[in-house]
């Protein structure tokens, strides 16, 4: 079904274009006198809104323990295949041996990352967080691949409300006897 749109009948003045052109000139001239909206970037810095998705980083908990347990869900979910995790075991003599698993290597290729935040959303340990860093540049492809150390350096600590891994070590602490 076709829809006929009625055209407004233009008056003579309108058909000369002149009032419209003058109107346009007025608008642009008024705009010229307004203050600028451009941010003079390196001199002025933008205020980032909460929830801003900058570079993904790895964070530690309040005790300085690395939160990541290398479950590789971020690697799985990453639509641009930017993340590469090499899982590894925590040494048996470590204070955190009961957590068992930690990344041996963790690389995020910032040339591939599209800052979608899916890794943060999928992370069961809240270990990978997109923080405020947005100005990423480098002189080689290699330096744009961030390794574990760089990711933790960029991430810092981010304590959790729920202390998932601070748990009782034996049934005696629970005052539960053996049957």
């Amino acid at each position: 079904m076709s829809i006929t749109v009625d055209r407004k009948k233009l008056s003579f003045l309108e058909r000369t274009y002149i009032p419209q052109i003058i109107g346009g000139l007025y608008i642009t001239f008024r705009n010229m006198l307004k203050s600028k909206v451009t941010l003079s970037y390196p001199d002025q810095r933008p205020t980032l809104p909460p929830g801003y998705r900058g570079a993904p980083t790895l964070v530690k908990d309040g005790d300085g323990r690395e939160k990541c347990v290398s479950c590789q869900l971020c690697e799985f979910i990453c639509p641009s295949k930017a993340i590469r995790v090499t899982p590894g075991a925590i040494k048996a003599d470590s204070k955190y041996a009961f957590i068992e698993k930690a990344p041996q290597a963790f690389e995020i290729n910032m040339l591939r990352c599209i800052f979608c935040g899916m890794c943060q959303e999928v992370c069961p340990e809240k270990a990978i967080v997109l923080q405020n860093e947005f100005s990423l540049a480098g002189f080689s492809r290699e330096e744009m691949v961030r390794d574990k150390a760089a990711l933790y350096a960029a991430g810092g600590t981010m304590p959790d409300k729920i202390k998932k891994w601070s748990r009782v070590k034996s049934n005696e602490e629970l005052e539960r006897g053996e049957h």
Binding site: M32, K34, K36, V37, T38, S40
Partner: peptide, 10 residues
Amino acid sequence: KVCAFMQGRY
């Protein structure tokens, strides 16, 4: 410059 000013730029 003029076009920038008219568009709110520098």
